[in-house]
C-alpha cells in the first residue's frame, strides 16, 4: 500500500497535466477515490499550478494591441493585396490552364504570338512598299503625302 501510495504521489504532476496513459490514469483515479492524503496532495499541487498560471499571465495593453493590429493591416495591404493587384492576370491564366503545372506554357506562347504578329506587320509593309515601287527611303514621305502632310 505504502509503495503504491508513493508511486501515485510521484505521478501526480503527470496526472494533473494530463500526461498519463489511460490505463495508468485510471489506476490513479481509483487510488484518489480511496486515499484522502493523495487527494489533498493533488488538490494542493493543482491550486499551486493554477495560482502560478493566473499570476504569470500577461494582459496586453489596448494601445499595444491596437498598434499591432494597425501595423498588421498595413503589412497585409503591402504584401498580400499589392501582390494580388500585380498578378491580376493570374486568375485568368489559371482558369484557362486549369493546371498549375502547365501554366509556364503560357509565357512562351504569348511571346511566340507577339513575334508572329510583328513579323506579319513587317512582311505586310514590305509587300506594300514593293507593289507601289517604294523604297525604304521614300516610304515615309509617301506616308506623309497619304495623310495630306506636304
Amino acid at each position: 500500500m505504502t509503495q503504491n501510495h508513493k508511486k501515485i504521489k510521484n505521478q501526480l504532476f503527470h496526472y494533473i497535466l494530463d500526461s498519463l496513459p489511460p490505463k495508468r490514469r485510471r489506476k490513479v483515479d481509483t487510488h484518489l477515490e480511496e486515499c484522502e492524503s493523495c487527494r489533498r496532495e493533488k488538490e494542493s499541487i493543482e491550486n499551486l499550478l493554477n495560482g502560478v498560471k493566473s499570476k504569470t499571465g500577461y494582459s496586453l495593453p489596448d494601445y499595444a494591441f491596437e498598434s499591432a493590429k494597425t501595423e498588421m493591416k498595413k503589412e497585409y495591404r503591402k504584401t498580400v493585396e499589392s501582390r494580388d493587384r500585380e498578378t491580376f492576370i493570374r486568375p485568368f491564366i489559371e482558369k484557362l490552364s486549369g493546371n498549375r503545372s502547365i501554366r509556364w506554357i503560357f509565357q512562351p506562347a504569348a511571346l511566340m504570338m507577339l513575334t508572329v504578329l510583328v513579323s506579319l506587320i513587317i512582311s505586310g509593309v514590305s509587300l506594300l512598299t514593293q507593289s507601289n515601287g517604294l523604297t525604304a527611303l521614300n516610304f515615309p514621305f509617301s506616308l506623309f503625302r497619304a495623310f495630306g502632310v506636304s
Binding site: T56, G57, Y58, L60, A64, A68, E71, M72, E75
Partner: peptide, 24 residues
C-alpha cells in the same frame, strides 16, 4: 511570449513582430 521573455515591453514588440511575420 511574456513567459518566455519576461519583459512587458519586449512582449509587446514580439507580439507585433509575430503578426507582421504571419502576414509576410
Amino acid at each position: 511570449i511574456y513567459r518566455m521573455v519576461k519583459q512587458p515591453e519586449i512582449t509587446q514588440d514580439i507580439f507585433q513582430e509575430t503578426w507582421l511575420n504571419v502576414v509576410r
